[in-house]
Nucleic acid binder design. Structure first.
Lengths: 229, 229
DNA sequence: ATTCTTTTTAAGTACAGACTAAAGTGGACA
DNA sequence: TGTCCACTTTAGTCTGTACTTAAAAAGAAT
């Protein structure tokens, strides 16, 4: 008997999985379960709290703990750093800056990041390769009002992602996945056909309400973002 | 002072965000932090454990707790039940069965689900609508060896997803997102143009190592799967 | 110097007890 | 009948103590 709370958690999970406690059923309260499992209430509490975290049960004061009807409500995706992802596959990582410009912040970007009008942004486009074959196209916009030092940074050798990680301590972010069609330029960069369907990840990040960057990551053809749960 | 552990957690998070403790830095140990915050070690432990869960720090016995270099490593996505998602937008949900057939399990499906050869599967295609406009195309395969009762179920009125939730208590799953091109049939169902890029979610589920179902969910044009963290 | 062993340190877990805060329940009252 | 408030139940949290375990560091043996 190594970790009691894990055992309790797995036993409760087992009973839910096997239908002993069906959807919307109310579980026994913590005191009773603690007695049944012969452990402290805190132990049962931890087990059930983690099950609630995972979306398996719902807990409310006084109302008790009940089994949620839908099997799974959430999945965790690990958002990889491109270089690590490529190296993790045993391939050689290569980065290249395609284009760099400083321009007035376009309206669509101001709207997306919630910016005041009038600032400048650094617009970078770059490519990430694995063993010389195109892996990801990066279209990056950095808010120079919040990060003026980005204008001086050397993005010829260091990718903007890694530069930002080192420069900005931490941030809130919004990420979304969707699909898009490769048009001429992206098709050329990614070495796919014009019109191919591509997987797109977009991320906006803020540092304490100040918008930092917005990025569009277009993945190679056939890319799949996968997770188990 | 309502919840001490939350305060501790937010203060630690603040220090990391603001760079007081930078990437790869070692945090003070639990005993010291407990003294600083004037609380029990268990309280600090809970705060740091949750930060570790969120991917902000890494904890190792003896080695202590250190700040992880990359700002965010993971994002949680809520996988919605189609009906709830549509109703949540205030739209009227409608479901329609497009096709139903029972066939020998195709090889690609056996490979994907890790099945023995020889069984039959129920293949369903259906549509989900919100306010009469197409929302999602569902291409569902149910393993009749594991779930023979599916052959008798009435999928004219109940969607396979909701039927499965009620029938199979719980399961492991693998989910992946990618992009695909609308070909004629799907374009017709989803009311988009041939060749449009569409967002695809695929999910395989198992119940205690027995494969239950594989489903391809093709979303309406322009669908975005979004989360904040 | 290298490898093995022991020690030490910091996190991981457990528990009993206590108090808090929601949220149903039911009764008093208008 | 309907509204509101006191009561009760149940999860949420904190504390202090104790013991366990992993792993780094230091020491010992080769």
């Amino acid at each position: 008997m190594k970790t009691a709370f894990r055992d309790v958690k797995e036993e409760i999970r087992r009973r839910i999985v096997q239908g002993v406690w069906g959807p919307d059923d109310l579980l026994p309260n913590e005191v009773d379960l603690a007695e049944e499992f012969d452990c402290a209430r805190a132990t049962v509490n931890r087990a059930m709290r983690e099950l609630a975290d995972e979306g398996m049960v719902e807990r409310k004061r006084k109302a008790g703990t009940r089994v949620l009807p839908s099997p799974v409500r959430q999945a965790r995706f690990h958002i990889p750093i491109v270089r690590k992802e490529i190296e993790g596959r045993g391939a050689q990582y290569r980065y290249a800056l395609v284009n760099r410009e400083i321009i007035d912040t376009p309206d669509w970007l101001r709207a997306r990041l919630g910016l005041e009008s009038g600032g400048k942004v650094l617009h970078l486009t770059c490519m990430h390769y694995g063993d010389s074959s195109p892996y990801q196209f990066e279209d990056r916009w950095i808010n120079l009002t919040a990060l003026p030092q980005a204008a001086e940074a050397d993005f010829d050798t260091v990718g903007p992602n890694e530069w930002l990680i080192a420069e900005v301590p931490y941030s809130d972010a919004e990420i979304s996945f969707s699909a898009l069609t490769a048009e001429a330029e992206i098709a050329k960069h990614l070495g796919c056909a014009d019109g191919d369907p591509l997987f797109l990840a977009e991320r906006s990040t803020w540092f304490e309400t100040r918008a930092i960057t917005y990025v569009r990551l277009v993945f190679q053809r056939g890319y799949r973002m996968t997770t188990r749960y």
